[in-house]
């Protein structure tokens, strides 16, 4: 399997605080990875470094043979291939659902409006909310909004999808409708990195689970070995707490 993301000795500080310590990670094309760990462990920071929403001070990230550096053009190019789904959806409230979806295809990828709209409607149909296309984000439920957010990031045909705790802000009743969409996506061969606490989802679709604490990768393994045969004491403790 070809590697699409290579992270080499990544270090990041927030002021004095050392948030990421010597992270090394390789992600294969089409691989589904789940990152978990206690809050403040640096999971979100790590995936936010991958599309340069966070700057890092040391180390390197290579995406699809492009080395990530602080250069406006390169960052935009990477971002047009790497999509992100946020915890709080971050839909644009002043635009209708369909306009949220066609924004990037038109302005970043220079597609025609008609072209972009056709594709957007197809994707909305896939996530099951085609009939809401003309509504505004605030008229939808949280679960629907997050599905729109996933649809929005799919509209640019990204090679990599990053999920930053996509279900943490949802009411329990709505979590499954979002996870179902993500499970469907995982079957399609798109590279996915998900920061999540949904262990059921991790068991079902992840090819590799990464456990982080205090800015470091403590352990990574296939779901089966990760849950049934944790090596480190820290992970055993963590699994005990979340699985009860």
């Amino acid at each position: 399997m070809k590697n699409i993301i290579k992270i080499n000795n990544l270090n990041k500080w927030y002021g004095e605080f050392h948030a990421l310590k010597n992270i090394n990670l390789e992600v294969g094309e089409g691989e589904i990875i789940v990152i978990c760990g206690p809050s403040g462990s640096g999971k979100s920071t790590l995936i936010r470094c991958i599309n340069f929403l966070e700057k890092f001070q040391q180390g390197s990230i290579t995406i699809d043979n492009t080395v990530l550096e602080d250069d406006v053009k390169k960052i935009r190019q990477i971002r047009s291939e790497v999509a992100m789904v946020f915890q709080h959806f971050n839909l644009f409230p002043h635009l209708s659902i369909i306009d949220n979806l066609i924004l990037a295809p038109i302005w970043v990828h220079h597609k025609s409006k008609q072209n972009a709209q056709e594709k957007a409607l197809k994707i909305l149909d896939r996530v099951g909310i085609k009939d809401q296309a003309m509504k505004y984000p605030n008229q939808l439920s949280g679960g629907q909004q997050q599905r729109v957010a996933i649809a929005r990031s799919l509209c640019t045909s990204p090679k990599i999808m990053l999920f930053d705790e996509p279900t943490s802000a949802l009411d329990p009743e709505m979590i499954s409708e979002v996870l179902d969409v993500m499970v469907e996506l995982a079957k399609e061969g798109i590279t996915m990195i998900c920061v999540t606490h949904e262990m059921g989802f991790a068991k079902k679709v992840a090819q590799r689970i990464i456990f982080m604490d205090e800015g470091q990768i403590i352990e990574q393994n296939s779901p089966d070995k990760f849950f049934n045969n944790p090596k480190s004491e820290r992970l055993k403790l963590f699994l005990n707490q979340i699985l009860g």
Partner: peptide, 15 residues
């Protein structure tokens, strides 16, 4: 305007 709006626009690759 919440910070998330800036981040979402950035993440989509808008200039």
């Amino acid at each position: 305007i919440p910070k998330g709006q800036y981040e979402a626009a950035d993440a989509l690759g808008l200039s």
